[in-house]
Design a protein around this nucleic acid. Structure first.
Lengths: 195, 195
DNA sequence: TATTTGTCTGACTAAAATGTCAAACAAATA
DNA sequence: TATTTGTTTGACATTTTAGTCAGACAAATA
């Protein structure tokens, strides 16, 4: 007989993603996930064999998803500056839906058992570097190693959101204020990156 | 009788710090730490009562240590630009000794059980903001919210080191090359922050 | 030296989490 | 409808990890 699609497999993956990336419970157990999904814990073994296998799968799919979303922007035919603006927006939306995703990824990547999937080289990066160089030649952006432009872009967007709880406390600002600050940062980042 | 200082308590703390921050083993067990320190696992209970208590203590001491080191720079009487340069250097040295410390902190802060210690407000921050404003008025740095200047400073330094394994792979660069890139970033960051 | 007392250890207990399996259940199909 | 087969469940077993405790050990000191 063919495989029956009861939606359970997807439900478990979605629930795991929610728990990890939206709720920030990095050390969730299989029981936690099963409870949240409303299924018996053993279905996780049925569909994914082991906890580890589920975790690895969810991680890989999350990485691929992010990559796809960002590549789509990088490979589009927008003019350079508009592309960067869109890139920032997409990044912000992603981090709004899954505030802990980035942090989770970093933990995983930095962990011992982690092995980087082979296909991590983005095909979108190479041509984007060319565009950066062009923009530099045209005096649109400050001259530096194109790699540093990309690093700066990621850094300026992601870091404040990663360390959000720390900074919110250090600077004694409430949620709404922080949100507003982040919106202002979007503009500021552009002004910083472009001349 | 007085407490005998056998150095074991400190040894355990140092070992835990090494395992967490230098080796990146975030999920180390008490057995792992005891083995690495060359003591029986139960001494951890003897000195720290529970695993949780040890973890909390190590975390707090690490936070305090970082804070002290950075505050020292911020409160010094150097001229503004030199202060920022020194700040960047200190940050780099710290992240060189304990590459995973920042990542560990972020995980912890983002975790459920985490409660922020009360005394997190740095007395050094207030006067530093004043200095930033002055530098802006003097046209030394780009005009923006002083808070954004600080966020940018942290972001540009820390993020690439946090995501090091990811970027190293994505960009296919070996260790030495990455190290060199980070050194170049120091200069680039200054050029970006100062006019 | 004898005693006290802080330090350390190994054996045991307890708790938490993962994995296995037989059987129940339900959807497809003969 | 009867049978097949994919799905789901609960009971049980295993593994992993943390905590307790009595006693061994060793440094201080009376």
């Amino acid at each position: 007989m063919a495989i029956r699609d009861t939606g359970t497999e997807q439900l478990i993956k979605d629930t795991a993603m929610r728990i990890f990336f939206a709720e920030g419970k990095f050390n969730a157990t299989t029981q936690d996930i099963a409870d949240a999904a409303g299924v018996a814990r053993t279905v996780i073994n049925y569909y994914f064999r082991s906890k580890d296998a589920l975790f690895k799968l969810v991680f890989k799919e999350a990485m691929d998803d992010t990559k796809r979303r960002l590549d789509e922007v990088l490979l589009s035919s927008m003019p350079f500056k508009k592309k960067v603006v869109t890139f920032i927006d997409v990044f912000f939306i992603e981090l709004n839906k899954y505030p802990y995703k980035e942090s989770f990824m970093i933990s995983e990547i930095n962990s011992q058992s982690f092995v980087m999937p082979d296909d991590r080289h983005s095909a979108a990066l190479e041509p984007f570097f060319k565009e950066i160089k062009q923009a530099m030649d045209m005096g649109e952006v400050r001259k530096m190693l194109p790699i540093n432009f990309v690093l700066n872009l990621f850094s300026l967007i992601a870091y404040p959101l990663l360390t959000r709880p720390l900074f919110k406390h250090m600077l004694e600002i409430p949620d709404a204020k922080f949100e507003q600050l982040m919106q202002e940062r979007k503009k500021m980042i552009l002004e910083l990156l472009f001349i």
